[in-house]
Amino acid sequence: MQQLHTPHVVVVMGVAGTGKTTIGPLLAARLGVPYAEGDDFHPPANIAKMTAGTPLTDDDRWPWLDAIGGWAHGRAGLGGVVSSSALKRSYRDRLRAAAPGVVFVHLTGSRELIEDRMSHRQGHFMPTALLDSQFAALQPLEPDEAGVAVDVAGSPEEIAERAVNALTDLPEPAQ
């Protein structure tokens, strides 16, 4: 398996349960860049809200997105992979404002598949009960946004391979 290198900073996005935390490190390894877990950027208050089954508000998300954007900015020209739900266009715009060359890998799948995967997770703070709010907030990538959609059916290795192949077709980021 050939390792690729990219100067892109890639945000692996999607609703909870799509496999961002699983696919992100696999993708980073294939691209030869570091991985950062987006959940690690949440302040404790956000984790507490989600653990209690309360969806985050935009005001809750701004500091989290700014922290992810700061990490992505620091990786500009070097490449990196970070996970973030990035559900709304405004969230992705905020990430792009911090790191203009960022591209998105939107992990997509049926609600049934994602709910099934979430129900088998252990030790994660996000309850399945919040999945509906995630889908309600989701605004898929628009044609003017740098990124690709990748279906999450199949093994993690297959999904990561599809993501690498899709990213190969993207133009190099502007510096």
Rank of each mutant, 00 (worst) to 15 (best):
G74Y: 08
T51P: 02
N46Q: 11
V10K: 14
R89Y: 10
D40Q: 08
T22W: 05
P44M: 02
A45I: 06
A48V: 04
A29K: 11
G123L: 14
D59P: 12
V102F: 09
A160K: 00
W64P: 01
S83H: 01
V15T: 13
V105T: 00
A28Y: 01
P100R: 12
L113V: 12
Q139C: 13
F125H: 15
L27I: 07
I23M: 08
G53R: 13
G109R: 00
L26S: 00
R61H: 05
P143I: 12
G38L: 11
P156G: 05
V15I: 04
A36F: 08
E37N: 08
G53V: 04
G24Q: 08
D40C: 11
R89F: 06
L167G: 09
A99Y: 05
P55H: 09
A129I: 10
L65Q: 10
L138R: 09
V81R: 05
W62H: 05
M50Q: 08
L27N: 01
G14S: 04
G70A: 13
A76C: 11
V150A: 01
R121C: 14
G32Q: 08
G80K: 04
P140K: 02
L4S: 14
R111T: 15
D144S: 09
L26P: 04
V11S: 02
G101E: 06
A29F: 09
L138N: 10
L26K: 06
E172A: 15
R117M: 14
A16W: 00
R121K: 10
A137T: 07
S110F: 05
M126Q: 03
G77W: 12
W62T: 02
P43L: 06
A137K: 09
D59S: 04
M13G: 07
T108Y: 15
L87K: 13
A137S: 04
G79K: 14
V82Y: 00
H120I: 07
S155W: 06
G70D: 07
L87P: 03
A36L: 01
D169S: 13
V11I: 02
A16Y: 06
P173I: 03
V10N: 10
H42S: 03
E158M: 00
I159D: 05
L167Y: 11
V33N: 01
P143D: 11
A86T: 01
R94W: 03
W62I: 07
